[in-house]
Design a protein around this nucleic acid. Structure first.
Length: 264
DNA sequence: ATGCCTAACACCGTTAGA
């Protein structure tokens, strides 16, 4: 089962690239972030024409997450289920059968858009840290089920300096703060695994390149989109990589997809 | 030291992103 994640930065503008990616990469589940539209305005017909179900949590103008899948989703939840509510559309989670109905092959997948948190020292950064605490709590709950699951999305966290093109320049950025990184590590300490680092140990591999200052052409980016796997999922992971090709196209998102293959 | 660029929404600029 191939699971991918991509911050598309407006699904309307990126629809041609999204169609290309679905055709060429053929993920069984694709987690989207920053669809930037209401759920009712998601281009469902275009996804359905390629054989994909769509579950979206949207809002006007900002944020918005979605799950596209070849198999129909089950047991969908549309926010972190702690009663804390969410004015911002940042979390959707569902269960999916393996393709072909493999016996026992079921994976729970969440598409998350973790708050950016800039600038530090404001309520935006406080909101980010509080949201991370809620995500840690949700992770603990899922771990108790002892099922394979994938927390996929735009974490807005560079886990280490090697995930940043210029750690000094980003020293005061919310994406690199010790408090942000500590909570990311808490997810790992609870038992999740950064799928990309299972297969790739080299530094300076990125999923985001700012539109400004020629960052893409200079390969000056950030690794902020992550697939975190539960123990039962990491036991089955066969591959994980970043697909840089969408970022090089005209009118690209500033993020590019990351994907993993699970043997389920 | 700052803006660089892109998108949405409303409007011909502002907010937000990371």
């Amino acid at each position: 089962m191939k699971i991918a994640s991509w911050n598309v930065n407006s699904v309307k503008v990126r629809l041609p690239h999204l169609i290309d990616f679905l055709k060429s990469s053929q993920p069984d589940v694709l987690c989207l972030q920053e669809i930037k539209c209401l759920a009712e305005d998601f281009p469902r017909l275009e996804a359905a024409a390629l054989g994909y179900h769509v579950e979206a949590l949207g809002q006007r103008a900002y944020n918005g997450v979605a799950l596209l899948s070849k198999e129909p989703p089950r047991d969908i939840i549309y926010s972190l289920p702690d009663g804390g509510g969410d004015e911002q559309a940042r979390y959707i989670e569902a269960s999916f059968s393996a393709p072909g109905g493999t016996a026992g092959g079921e994976v729970r997948v969440a598409s998350i858009y973790l708050p950016n948190g800039n600038p530090i020292g404001t309520d935006k950064f406080t909101y980010k840290l509080a949201w991370m605490e809620r995500l840690i709590a949700r992770t603990s709950e899922l771990l108790r089920r002892e099922i394979p699951f994938v927390m996929a999305g735009d974490y807005n966290i560079c886990p280490a300096d090697e995930d940043v093109f210029d750690p000094i320049a980003l020293r005061d950025d919310a994406l690199c703060q010790p408090e942000s990184r500590a909570r990311f590590r808490a997810l790992l300490h609870h038992g999740l695994t950064d799928a990309y680092r299972v297969f790739h140990l080299e530094p300076h591999r990125y999923t985001f390149w700012d539109y400004q200052a020629g960052r893409w052409n200079r390969d000056e980016g950030l690794r902020i989109d992550h697939l975190l796997l539960s123990p039962h999922a990491v036991d089955r992971v066969a591959a994980c990589d970043i697909d840089k090709s969408p970022r090089g196209k005209d009118r690209a998102s500033d993020h590019t997809p990351i994907w993993c293959e699970l043997a389920v």
